[in-house]
Design a binder for these strands. Structure first.
Lengths: 200, 200
DNA sequence: GCGTGATTTTACCAGTTGGTCAAAACATGG
DNA sequence: CCATGTTTTGACCAACTGGTAAAATCACGC
């Protein structure tokens, strides 16, 4: 039985989550400090520790929320839908997440690059499982001749790579393009690429 | 006139570079400490600072070397070669770099994710320029009908994204696949994908 | 095997780090 | 407006941070 949140708790907890996301996504766990999060959230350091008992709890709470949002759209793929539309729809959705929630993408990227020390169990269990199911579905689609014969796992990696690239490497993308908004063209390109890859 | 290096200098400098690469690629600049680099290199902290005058110099030296290796294969693309072979060759080369030098890839990824504070000038000048030239070449190839009509910049981003994914997200890739070596199949998949995308 | 410069170590420092604690300030229902 | 629980603060700590200075040790040509 957890007590109901007071309005103050709700406001401050979310301010801390937001500040934590801002800081951790930029510097990773080790590179971030409670002082930065304190500054960013407008709360004092001891006050932050009143709401979350350690730096690590803030971090893992953020990662937990993130993984839920991450996995959901994979689970939502409709096995009875049109294969190409389903896969393209998933890619488009990931692309929107990169555009609208780049900090989450960077937080996750940081964690994985650093060897995923705090979520490797989720990767080998939940993620593995959910991806395998998706991969089997793709396999069955190509067996039925509905899409080209592709390696399902590596197709999924390609989708992740291309879509997350726009969030994680945003700085490089914009530097190379000269500060246009890369997303409209990027989305079209990824769609084109996947369609070419999948169309029989 | 810089003095010639003694064997000891050569050995220790390279030990520090190697240790720095190991540590910085895992934790980024802010998250890494001289103590970690000292431990990893087997030298004492003051001894490290005898060879490099600060933590930042180690880091920027590594980044500098990296960018040179990074840019070279783009410059080496032959405008008179077979377009598809040239692009696929470049992608294959990047893939090998991901396989053989994953730490460099992660170091670079960390730097970009963190907003590229120490190399943004290189990105907007040298990288921008070199990529624009490559993009123009791609454009001319598709104008001549030698490859499909694609957005050159975003094609390049896709190549970078897919190839570097295998280094930067190695942990996730292996977790999902269950510890097979992902590279042989990954390389084939990327090649297939690009060929589909480019063949008229 | 000695002298000189190259290398390494020891001891240290000031600033920052994550975190604690008790006291103070606040909110709010009665 | 008071009592009680909630929230916030200020003072503090031990460990760690990047970096310094000088002394000690080492390597090597003579």
């Amino acid at each position: 039985m957890s007590k109901p949140e007071t309005p103050i708790q709700k406001k401050n907890r979310s301010a801390i989550m937001n500040a934590g996301l801002e800081v951790f996504s930029k510097f990773g766990f080790r590179g971030s400090t409670l002082d930065q999060i304190a500054l960013e959230s407008g709360l004092s350091k001891p006050n932050i520790l009143y709401y979350f008992k350690s730096k690590e709890v803030i971090y893992t709470t953020l990662l937990g929320e993130l993984l839920t949002d991450w996995l959901k759209p994979v689970r939502d793929i409709d096995p009875d839908g049109d294969p190409i539309a389903e896969i393209l729809g998933y890619a488009a959705h990931k692309m929107e997440m990169s555009q609208n929630y780049p900090r989450q993408s960077r937080l996750y990227a940081n964690e994985i690059i650093q060897g995923a020390p705090r979520i490797s169990n989720v990767l080998t269990s939940e993620l593995h499982e959910v991806v395998d199911k998706f991969a089997q579905l793709i396999k069955s689609w190509s067996k039925k001749g509905l899409i080209r014969d592709v390696d399902p796992h590596h197709l999924i990696f390609s989708i992740w790579a291309m879509t997350q690239h726009y969030a994680d490497f945003d700085f490089q993308v914009r530097a190379v393009l000269g500060h246009d908004d890369p997303f409209p063209k990027g989305e079209k390109h990824v769609e084109d690429m996947l369609r070419q890859m999948l169309t029989v």
